[in-house]
Write a protein that binds this DNA or RNA. Structure first.
Lengths: 226, 226
DNA sequence: AGAGAGTTGTCATAGAATTGTCAAATGGCC
DNA sequence: GGCCATTTGACAATTCTATGACAACTCTCT
């Protein structure tokens, strides 16, 4: 499910947006000040941030610029009170991805939100990124994040996870894994696979004794589900 | 000078745009049909294409999609007659970079054109000066500062750091480094790279035994993060 | 439901591979 | 020669990988 942060200091607008987006099945957080927003992005990775330009404590422009300078890569959609053209553009200049002028129609807002999220998806797909359950894996760059924290996976763990992701939902046998990841001429014992599955679980599962993603299929092998 | 192509079948609008953009010192070509546009991009590389959605022979959407599928990488700005919200978004979906709804103000159009071209520029521009973690590196002048003190880096150390910066966040293999920095015909041992990384670490890391920037990725190579 | 066989989970540990580090060798250049 | 950047190799330190022993779990059959 996509994660959205709404930054807006007018309570009615904020609640309206929350309701609207929740109905559309997004996971929504809200806050009312620029400072709160900057704090929020420290601990959570949002797919999209809806940012009002007029905030009580600081301008949305500054919030946007600050986030970008801190390498926050979430998509940013600016909300502007209808104003001069220049304002709009400034928003895009400093790293925002799109804007909507108030008052806006719900349909337009939703359409833009979806468009941004879809673009996001496309970009990360083409780069070989995968995310699920609050984690993000980049196989090209070989790095992995749970929220903001780095997950350290070894080369083989990356390979294993990659293999599972390519065979999402399928049951994968130990033989398959040995052949495709370890290579045909290697002779690791059966236990090896299990051990790697174990260590992967310890890293990507919240409770590795009750795996939600790396499921064992008795007498057959393992199966990965998001 | 930046090169712009205007694709618009209404003559008055086309001429208006041409005049406006020429005044702003852009080099402007125009055409009136989708087909003409697709031909034009075969022979000329434009920095930006301004594309009307309503054309007499084919829809601007299709023109846009076709160009993207042929890997035309020019920025594309769509012009839409004020219509349903959905239309706007569709434009971005198929590879356009921005859009303006008619009737538009000249100031807004110019601002958006400049914004797009500047974004373009940023992407292709290489790094001259970089600073992070209280240090500043000037690769053109080949000098480096930590605060007020000079950091003395050798030529190869500069090259190495530069390479890492250009590949920020990615894992870089030793082979890559040997090829790209030492050159294909050189035969330095693997240890060479490690030694250079070591000496770079001693200069740019606060504690070179616990590197924060030049991270080793076991079995793969190194990775630079700010 | 319970026993037994087979399968999987888990841990500790040894061995292999990779990387960090130092100090000395090389070679150009003023 | 003296200086410096560069390269090399030896060795230590670290990390990854594989393995086996045993516990825990599933399944089947009675």
């Amino acid at each position: 499910m996509k994660n959205i942060l709404i930054v807006e200091d007018e309570i009615p607008v904020r609640n309206g947006l929350r309701e609207l987006l929740t109905q559309e099945n997004f996971s929504v957080d809200t806050c009312g000040t620029g400072k709160a927003c900057l704090d929020a992005v420290k601990t959570t990775v949002y797919d999209l941030i809806i940012l009002d330009i007029m905030l009580s404590d600081m301008s949305g422009f500054d919030v946007c610029r600050t986030m970008r300078s801190r390498n926050v890569s979430s998509k940013i959609l600016m909300l502007t009170a209808r104003s001069e053209e220049i304002d709009k553009v400034l928003g895009l200049e400093l790293g925002a991805d799109d804007y909507v002028t108030k008052p806006f129609g719900n349909k337009e807002l939703i359409a833009r939100v979806r468009a941004l999220l879809r673009r996001q998806e496309k970009i990360s797909q083409s780069l070989g990124e995968v995310s699920f359950d609050g984690m993000k894996f980049d196989f090209a760059k070989q790095n992995a994040l749970r929220g903001k924290e780095e997950l350290r996976l070894s080369a083989k763990e990356f390979k294993l996870l990659h293999y599972f992701l390519q065979h999402e939902g399928e049951v994968v046998t130990r033989e398959q894994l040995l052949n495709d990841i370890w290579g045909y001429d290697s002779t690791p014992t059966t236990r090896t696979v299990d051990n790697y599955v174990l260590s992967l679980r310890k890293k990507i599962e919240k409770n590795h004794r009750k795996p939600k993603h790396l499921i064992t299929v008795h007498t057959s092998g393992y199966k990965f589900v998001r």
